[in-house]
Each structure stands twice: as structure tokens, then as C-alpha cells.
């Protein structure tokens, strides 16, 4: 009789735990079926590959956006931009990936930090919505080619260059001489073409006419508030407001923000040591596994 009572108690405790556990799991924010918002950061100069001085690599951002788009648990993407711009091609790569995501139906919201100018704004314009602080520096829609000329420096140091080239323009942009009239014209044409691409993409992303964009696309810097008045930004607010907007667009009540980024082995294993040895180590192992997938 005593044994039967013990068995009954154990069975009840286990059964109730399983039921309660399942109920918790399906509402638990971290791994439950409630929606997640992926946070992707674009910081510093945007280039195709990451440089030794930091910045953002379009290769990695494109991978992260793709991963977030294909993960059915991620319901929306929040891109935090704090960048003065960068290479046109790298910005376009990210722009295209955001557009793909937007067209797939998964909302993308951009939150602007200190600055999202030039290439930074190029990227932002692809998002469904843009949120900026009133004092954020943005705009600067335009293209620039800086050509340093060091001919006098080389003269003073007695350095000469022997040039053998297959065509007249093969050394266009060389630092040892100025542009010729024709070269300047060619460079201007390339700049204008890139500018047209920039303006057309911004117009497409923001659903504003090319003519209207061109009126302000003279390289001018705008504050977040000015940008909102001109329709380049949708709302004024901080990253929390942007998160809420992303959640609203995705129909999530209580969003969980998950940051898609890589950590070093040390950070992954010991970064959360304060939260408990077990937590830190297990978390690290899981992150290592998942990060490997991003890296490959």
C-alpha cells in the first residue's frame, strides 16, 4: 500500500511536470514558438571583405540576412546601422539581400544610430521601415571618387615610374599623375552611372519618385528629423521603438531579439561565466555549433 502511494506521487509529479513543461516551452520566449526578431549590426565602413581596422563586411551581413530570412522561427529582421557609408558594390550587395527578404514577406526594419549616411542610407532604403533618432546623421546621397595625386611627392624623392599599358586608360586613377581631360570625363561618367543606380534604388526602396529623390540627392547631410520630413525616414525613435515596429509588422506580441553574430571561442565559452558555470559552457558549445553554420 505504501509503495503504491509513492508510485502514485511520483507518477503525478512527473505527469504534471511534463504537462507544465510543455505549456512553458510553447510560451517560453527563448526557444518557444513565439516569434524572434533577428538583430544584425552594420557598423563602420562598409566593404566587401572586412578590413583589419574593423568596419562591416557585406559578405557576412548578406550571410546573416539570408540565415535570418530562411529561419522560420525568426519573424522579422532589425538592422542597426551606425555607418558613414562605404563601397558602392558592398552597399548594393546588402541592399539586394534586404530587398529579397522584403519581397519574401519577412519584414525588415532599420534602426539608425549616430549615422547612416551615403552607403549606410543606401542599405537602409531597402527596408520596409526606417526609424532614426532626431539627431541621427543621414542622407548624403551621392557618389565620390577621391583621387590623390602624389606626383610632386615622387618628384621630390626622385621616384620615377615606367608605365607599359595595353590601352590609354589602363592607369586611370594612378597616383603619380593627374587625370587627363578624357579620363576625367570617363570617371565622371562612371560616377554618374553609380549615382543613378543609387538614386533609383533609393527611390524604389522608399517608393518615392526618382525626380523627388534627385532634388535632395546632392550629397547633403540630413538630420533624422529633416529626413523624416522629406520621407527618407518613417519614424523618429530609438532601437526599442524599431524593435517594437518590427514585431508589430510581423504580428509578434512579445518579441525576443536574437543577435546574429560570431564570438571568439573565449567569449563564447566564458563570456557568461557570471551567470553560472554550467550555463556559460553549455551556451558556448551550442553557440559554437550554430556559429559554425553561419561561417560555412
Amino acid at each position: 500500500m505504501k509503495e503504491k502511494i509513492i508510485i502514485l506521487i511520483i507518477a503525478l509529479v512527473v505527469l504534471i511536470s511534463v504537462v507544465v513543461g510543455i505549456l512553458i516551452l510553447f510560451q517560453a520566449p527563448a526557444i518557444g514558438i513565439s516569434g524572434k526578431v533577428a538583430l544584425i549590426r552594420v557598423e563602420g565602413t562598409i566593404t566587401s571583405s572586412k578590413g583589419i581596422f574593423g568596419g562591416t563586411s557585406s559578405e557576412e551581413i548578406v550571410k546573416q540576412i539570408k540565415q535570418a530570412r530562411e529561419d522560420f522561427l525568426i519573424k522579422a529582421i532589425l538592422i542597426r546601422i551606425n555607418s558613414p557609408g562605404g563601397s558602392a558594390a558592398a552597399s548594393q550587395e546588402i541592399y539586394m539581400e534586404i530587398m529579397k527578404t522584403r519581397n519574401s514577406g519577412k519584414p525588415v526594419v532599420v534602426s539608425m544610430g549616430d549615422a547612416a549616411t551615403s552607403g549606410g542610407y543606401y542599405i537602409a532604403s531597402a527596408a520596409n521601415r526606417i526609424v532614426a533618432a532626431p539627431g541621427t546623421l543621414t542622407g548624403s546621397i551621392g557618389v565620390i571618387w577621391v583621387h590623390p595625386v602624389l606626383s610632386r611627392f615622387f618628384e621630390e624623392w626622385g621616384i620615377q615610374f615606367e608605365i607599359v599599358k595595353s590601352g590609354p586608360y589602363k592607369d586611370i586613377g594612378a597616383v603619380w599623375r593627374n587625370f587627363t581631360e578624357e579620363e576625367w570625363q570617363l570617371a565622371k561618367e562612371a560616377i554618374n552611372d553609380t549615382y543613378d543606380q543609387f538614386v533609383e534604388d533609393v527611390a524604389k526602396g522608399r517608393n518615392i519618385s526618382v525626380e523627388k529623390i534627385k532634388q535632395i540627392a546632392d550629397g547633403r547631410i540630413l538630420t533624422g528629423r529633416q529626413a523624416k520630413e522629406l520621407g527618407l525616414v518613417d519614424a523618429l525613435g530609438n532601437i526599442e521603438d524599431a524593435t517594437k515596429l518590427a514585431a508589430d509588422l510581423a504580428g509578434i506580441e512579445k518579441p525576443v531579439v536574437v543577435e546574429l553574430k560570431k564570438r571568439t571561442l573565449f567569449e563564447a565559452l566564458f563570456g557568461t561565466m557570471g551567470e553560472g558555470i554550467s550555463r556559460g559552457i553549455v551556451k558556448g558549445i551550442i553557440q559554437l555549433y550554430l556559429q559554425k553554420q553561419i561561417a560555412l
Binding site: V18, I24, L25, I31, I286
Partner: peptide, 24 residues
């Protein structure tokens, strides 16, 4: 039972992880 327990434990440590493999 172990699956439910393990998933609950993961929910404690997986706050920054989003992946289909760790859905309940």
C-alpha cells in the same frame, strides 16, 4: 520526460540563439 526537461534547460541558456534545431 527527458526531452521536456532538456528543452526547459535550453530555454534558460538559449536566450541569444535562434535556430530551428532548438525549437521545442
Amino acid at each position: 520526460c527527458a526531452g521536456v526537461g532538456g528543452a526547459l534547460n535550453l530555454s534558460l541558456i538559449a536566450q541569444e540563439i535562434a535556430h530551428p534545431l532548438i525549437s521545442p
